[in-house]
Design a protein around this nucleic acid. Structure first.
Lengths: 155, 155
DNA sequence: GGGTATTAGTTGTGTTTGTAACTATCAATG
DNA sequence: CATTGATAGTTACAAACACAACTAATACCC
């Protein structure tokens, strides 16, 4: 019988068993790939694309509403809104009943960009997921949503 | 019969159907949560933790080898190595047969940090994944690896 | 062996992010 | 109404990142 005394028994822990790592690798890959649509074609950053998406998908919103829905910090949204306005993708209108808030709406150019990018997103998603069975896709979707919605994984 | 002419039929596309979005949300959540272990306790950044991990898990490596294995850019690794050396977690030794390269090894402090962080990583992972069945966990793992390894999702 | 190309690693620069502090407006309470 | 506190959004500053240019050492090859 062979003696395995020299083997490191303690750490069979591989990076590929570590979910944050796996998630990051996959997220980074797909994000970088999809970037080229909104970045090259419209000069947007990821946050800008997400803000645009929320406005296109859910109609006029305030910055705060976008923060809440999208889980983005207000400074990120503020900068994205400023950039999108500069490029004439959105329009701001102060509310009269509460002049702290402003309602954001897509311009015609913004709607066009939205339509285009949503179509690209759907196509990208289809191409990405066609490699997997419908059951597997649904399992992944469900678990990712669940992880995202989990309250803190307690120490 | 009601006329639905005004409905936007074209875009039943939700963010929650968009895999890059789902991946990013889950990745960001878990990364931020796990950050506190290496960040608060050892003052490391994510790249530093990953460099430390590779050295602890796979033994002495050059910076280039870490780049290749971890899929990190050399400038990131260079700065992580500098930071880890400053905090005395690693040691550098120029190779005699090729004086461009330097072999990186963990110091005692580096090994201690590695052992601690790997244990925390394993515990975090267990707590995260205990909410799912073994089959689901395996499905997710497999698909995330597959996505990461995919060549470009062609336009 | 001398010029050219590669390779390992570093540094510099502009861009993006995170955090905190700030302004302006509104709400609540005395 | 005046003061205090909360809220929507912006700005300022430092940390982090990406990408290109750089240094130093080695390989190639005529």
């Amino acid at each position: 019988m062979v003696y395995f005394g020299d083997m490191k028994e303690k750490s069979p822990f591989e990076l590929e068993d570590f979910m944050p790592y796996l998630l990051n690798q996959a997220a980074e890959k797909t994000s970088l790939e999809f970037q080229k649509y909104y970045r090259l074609k419209y000069g947007m950053l990821r946050t800008e694309w997400r803000v645009l998406f929320h406005l296109g998908r859910y109609g006029a919103l305030t910055a705060k509403a976008i923060c809440d829905r999208a889980g983005l910090h207000k400074t990120k949204v503020s900068r994205a809104v400023a950039a999108l306005e500069t490029r004439r993708f959105i329009q701001r209108n102060r509310m009269e009943q509460d002049r702290r808030q402003e309602v954001l709406t897509l311009t015609r150019a913004g709607e066009n960009a939205f339509d285009d990018l949503v179509a690209e997103a759907a196509r990208y998603n289809t191409r990405l997921m066609q490699n997997f069975s419908a059951e597997d896709a649904e399992t992944v979707r469900r678990i990712l949503l669940q992880i995202t919605a989990m309250e803190t994984v307690q120490p």
